[in-house]
Write a protein that binds this DNA or RNA. Structure first.
Lengths: 338, 338
DNA sequence: CTGAAAGCGCTTACAG
DNA sequence: CTGAAAGCGCTTACAG
């Protein structure tokens, strides 16, 4: 639709197309007055640079890739939403690729790279820790930014949110409500978030003056079902926990179900904290107190880094703040006053 | 990476670049022998056409858009997976856009169209039925294909799977197992699938020789929670249903929870059928009998239609087959032998 | 059935 | 600080 070209803008601003190009690309050496004139012309004409032409003439493809593997749909959607937003703002496209880590991930990565010219790649867990994929990217000299890696953090710019600190805050929150019999439902062993959240929680208890070894730990696998099973097992105990930290919201929802089956009320009899602030957190009753990891913002930051050509910079760590979302599933320890 | 250009291929095959272009674009008027020679050269050199150059010289952008609104993440991911696969095969990109139908959808659509040149657009429910969005697309002359529209099917090519027939099959399946006290948990009123599945189920009962009016209908909204509530209400009745058709898997999972709380076993005491074959269907126990709508394939077909330039053809309907997935949640009516 | 020429809308590499 | 020229790799519109 945009028939307006760089030539039209150049004429309107009475400059050469090279100067318009400089303004578009924020290159130096343009007098402020001239720049203002060009920008006014761009706005007036509704000029949008032709990506195909820019790509053909220059070295950029204007495509950023996002690689996923074995994924939680909510998480993927959040990453996409953030990355897409950043891409759109700069006229980039987001190419989504799903890897099957079970098979030869590096070969799949190379196959993708053979057909698609990418200016950069965003890696999310668990591929974010797949050395073979990083190698394939390095071999082609393609910049990449990783979300929440557990290993090899020195290999690329990295975007994180402090899960351990968030879990510690959850622990203190429960502690401050007077809870002393506390259980954690941990995530699966393969997932780096599991360890981060568990250790963070223990650390929070310790820093509050408690004994981290007193914290009951039950294994889960991030599914509703495992949360239900863990909750049932916990509530069957004579002196069952009065507070439970589930390492994700789905398991917390399972705990809700277990509590209902066990005749326990939330938060009167037992307090529950989840993690992720997924949709289910607002669907359950009472609404779940949980932690929000700014996934979309993290992905957007990764995309921006790549778009600005900073994906090959010396390894940096960009940390974005988590947020505890206080809702109705936590309250005072039942015998506070007994 | 692909330094090989159309010129290299032309030299290798001893033809002009125009002939190579004809082969790439499957244009007519190339002798079979020449075509074979060109294809051999392409293969030998590993030539991949430069999309930016093709786009700049020609009329195509090589970008297909997919519009979503208020979405089930699993569904969106499935649509994306299918559409991406089709796009990748033809060197296209998929641009994903989320609309907020609550706000001015047409304005959002126009804003998107102003910056992105799209060769076609895939619309999925519920935007697939948003007349204002269709108008905006028509105004810009952009072809579109719609997935599962409920209205205005004559406005574009349309991809469907027969939800009503699938629901009818589910009904007959239950009927054949001897069930006569049957309930349906319906979806939300705004969603076209709700009506399709409910009416199809009723029709199935009638065609099996039953009385469709005897089928109990309880309202749900496609969430686990509404399925749980509906199940609890149903199971509280003296002569509770022995079979339940939940209009989606999430609600079916809610029914599982209700059954457990009510001391009912699946499928011994009550049979359950879901719809969607979402991941939860294999997570619950016993695994859920459900219906698979070929969402990814439907999206792939839509993308292919658009890529082949058939998006503006006279309205067609492409129907893809659903599939009933028999698992362990259905069995004989409990008193079959009493 | 095949090809030579022009041009798509930019950026690059220079020149000044 | 600014611009004229060349060229990126294709497709279009013709000519034969």
């Amino acid at each position: 639709m945009s028939r307006v070209t760089i030539n039209d803008v150049a004429s309107a601003a009475a400059v050469s197309i090279k100067t318009v190009s400089r303004v578009i690309n924020r290159e130096p050496n343009v007098r402020p007055a001239v720049q203002a004139r060009v920008e006014a012309a761009i706005r007036k004409l509704g000029y949008v640079p032709n990506t195909a032409a820019r790509s053909l003439a220059g070295a950029r493809s204007f495509v950023i890739g996002a690689i996923f593997d074995n994924p939680n749909p909510h998480y993927i959607i959040a990453v996409q939403r953030g990355a897409m937003a950043a891409c759109r703002q700069s006229g980039y496209h987001l190419a989504i690729e799903e890897l099957d880590t079970a098979k030869n991930a590096a070969a799949q990565m190379r196959a993708m790279l053979a057909t698609a010219r990418l200016d950069g790649v965003i890696l999310s867990p668990p591929v974010t820790d797949c050395a073979a994929v990083l190698d394939a990217l390095d071999a082609k000299n393609i910049p990449y930014v990783r979300l929440m890696p557990a290993t090899a953090k020195g290999r690329s710019p990295v975007i994180i949110s402090d899960d351990a600190a968030a879990a510690a805050e959850a622990a203190r929150h429960l502690w401050d409500f007077g809870h002393r019999r506390i259980a954690v439902i941990a995530g699966p062993a393969g997932h780096s978030a599991s360890a981060l959240r568990l250790e963070g929680f223990r650390h929070g208890i310790a820093s509050a003056g408690g004994d981290a070894r007193q914290v009951r730990v039950v294994k889960g696998d991030f599914t509703f079902r495992s949360g239900l099973a863990a909750g049932l097992a916990l509530f069957a105990e004579k002196k069952h926990p009065t507070a439970i930290f589930a390492s994700n919201d789905d398991m917390a929802a399972g705990v809700y179900s277990a509590a209902a089956q066990s005749g326990l009320r939330i938060p009167d009899d037992v307090s529950v904290v989840g993690y992720d602030d997924s949709p289910v957190a607002e669907l359950v009753w009472p609404p779940l107190t949980t932690v929000r990891q700014p996934v979309a913002e993290m992905a957007a930051e990764a995309a921006r880094l790549l778009i600005e050509g900073r994906g090959s910079d010396a390894p940096h760590t960009f940390e974005l703040p988590y947020k505890m979302i206080m809702r109705g599933s936590t309250g005072a320890e039942p015998c506070m006053g007994c």
